[in-house]
Design a protein around this nucleic acid. Structure first.
Lengths: 340, 340
DNA sequence: AGTGTTTGCGCAATCGATTGCACATGAAGC
DNA sequence: GCTTCATGTGCAATCGATTGCGCAAACACT
């Protein structure tokens, strides 16, 4: 009873050739057939409980209806909504998603990419691209559609979906300036990542636009986008610039590291120093004080990545290959107008 | 140049039959061959850059080296570490992971399970099982190995990996009792989920063990494991039991809902009321006050789930089919000894 | 030396669906 | 009434790897 139903069973049932069933089941090829046959095939397939064997179809056609995503860390609250949005966009069109976690011990991550290519994925999403990334090369020469998400590449060789990082930081800086702050410093992210680089550039540009001219000492680069990396960076920065009244962090985790550094020094946030993050991760509204930040809709980025990739796979794409989403400012309790 | 290398190419190169190459490449079947042949095949495969076609192998052998997981919400901080741990365990042994997000609009979620079965996954992980779950039926009759994680089923028909919920709640209750609390109430989770049910039972049992006898009014069931559901439940509970000095929440998100309810009523935590959660999600150490909770290692649960499932798939399993991990108490600022 | 057994590898069928091509049927054109 | 086409369906090869079976050579044994 649990015998698996194949296309032949359906063909026998209806009294047609298997190839006819194959065509009837494919909406794109359906119209080459007579309407009554199609109807009978569909009905029989339904009744017998036919499920196409993806492996067989994939072997013959070369298409797997599978998309791979490589992420640095699935559990990172930045990436999980991206995966979620992506999965939503893909499954709506019959594609499934393979998630590969980037092991830190494989520099470049070609390994995961190779694995996914060996699995004959129809497309690939890279959520971990560095500014110059070897994995991108591999995809390019494997002729496989690929979209970068969250982080872009140095040269825009491949499509990407990112937040407007420069604009986001500008939002943060302008918010502080509007509150009267002038001595504003920046905890930057790793400069090997587009997010780290662009946010730093954005910081400098926004400050200049306000007539301020930050120098090297106003910026400290954290080695990673983590709380752990944020703490020493913030310590160093606050030591160099004890008169700073506000800190712009390149992301929320770094901002939390700044919180810790301030606490160590017995300085209060926001009374002594305002702090603003970036991303608006879950729960940052509940930390103390509630973190002001710049909201990026990672879920939406995931969905748009999926849509773009599917268009690329089916060859129906038109429109921009570089999608940029607009961040919005979320002011909470960690920033306040400068007193006096 | 980018021509894909098949097993035939390798065979021709070495001067043996394709079947020999197939055997030489499989460690399990390798020992049936002569050592020099194996060596030459391996060398040639490496040199030519041979990558097995998973679709073809899957079609013929019926094994896909693919495992599916169904989760209620990828972005939920409870599930993402599970996925992460699972992926780690699987990829170490050459399996890839397909993630399917459970749409709320499909009651029972058989749909996702069907999709995964149609993709010929070798095994399935269900992270969303209700106490009586139709999806489990499907897996059972599809004869496909399945492991439940995080939530167990009512009857233990299938293997599962869960935290010891009763023990966890006991930890929480005992911690409060040791701090002098007596009027302790419980915000329970949905009773249709094993986590909700067991934690509630655990609460009652632990209280009784301490010589206290909680009644219905000391417990309020939230409709979901969310902050949003926690708020009204906490409101109702605190209204019924205004003299309560401590609240045990069935998970951290509910505990945060309790925070909000207390704030509404102008009561302070922990001075007026102690609150303890469950799970130790990321960032709950940074909320105000830092949340005392019971730590569950979801990442570890994911890894053990993967190991168990692989054993089941390869038929090499021995040992328990119901794995229970031990939670630990994490006391932070939201609980304090009862004054006076 | 002859028989029996093991070892090592080739042969060919097979998994289930897709697809280029061939062919039959009926309609249309002159 | 015969050629020309269009339309709808069947035929069979094919994708790449796996695997049961069979056979030959090498070895063991009396």
């Amino acid at each position: 009873m649990a015998a698996v139903v194949t296309i032949k069973d359906v063909a026998r049932e209806v009294g047609v050739h298997p190839s006819t069933v194959s065509r009837a089941l494919d909406p794109a090829r359906r119209d080459r057939l007579g309407e009554p046959v199609v109807r009978r095939v569909l009905e029989a397939a339904e009744r017998l409980g036919y499920r196409p064997d993806v492996a067989a179809a994939s072997l013959r056609s070369g298409r797997s209806k599978l998309v791979g995503i490589v992420v640095p860390d699935i559990a990172n609250p930045v990436f999980s909504p991206i995966i979620s949005g992506l999965e939503r966009a893909l499954s709506a069109r019959g594609y499934a998603l393979i998630v590969a976690d980037q092991r830190p011990d494989y520099a470049g991550g070609n390994d995961m990419v190779q694995m996914l290519i060996a699995r004959r994925v129809d497309g690939l999403v890279l959520a971990n691209a560095a500014l110059k990334d070897g994995a991108v090369e591999r995809c390019l020469q494997a002729q496989i559609p690929v979209v970068l998400v969250n982080r872009a590449e140095g040269q825009a060789r491949v499509p990407s979906v990112v937040s407007d990082d420069m604009a986001g930081i500008t939002l943060a800086v302008d918010h502080l300036i509007a509150s009267g702050h002038r001595r504003i410093v920046h905890v930057a992210g790793p400069q090997s990542l587009s997010t780290g680089l662009l946010r730093r550039r954005g910081f400098v540009a926004a400050m200049r636009a306000a007539g301020l001219d930050p120098d090297e000492d106003d910026i400290e680069e954290a080695v990673a986008f983590t709380r752990e990396a944020g703490l020493p960076a913030a310590r160093a920065l606050l030591a160099r610039r004890p008169d700073a009244t506000a800190v712009v962090a390149a992301n929320d985790l770094l901002a939390l590291g700044v919180y810790e550094a301030l606490r160590e020094q017995g300085r209060r946030c926001p009374e002594d120093v305002s702090v603003i993050g970036h991303n608006d991760m879950p729960l940052v509204d509940l930390v103390s004080p509630p973190l002001s930040t710049v909201r990026i809709s990672h879920h939406e980025m995931g969905e748009r990545t999926g849509a773009l990739l599917l268009d690329l796979i089916t060859g129906t794409h038109q429109g921009a290959l570089q999608i940029v989403t607009s961040p919005v400012l979320v002011a909470r309790g960690s920033t306040q107008p400068l007193e006096n």
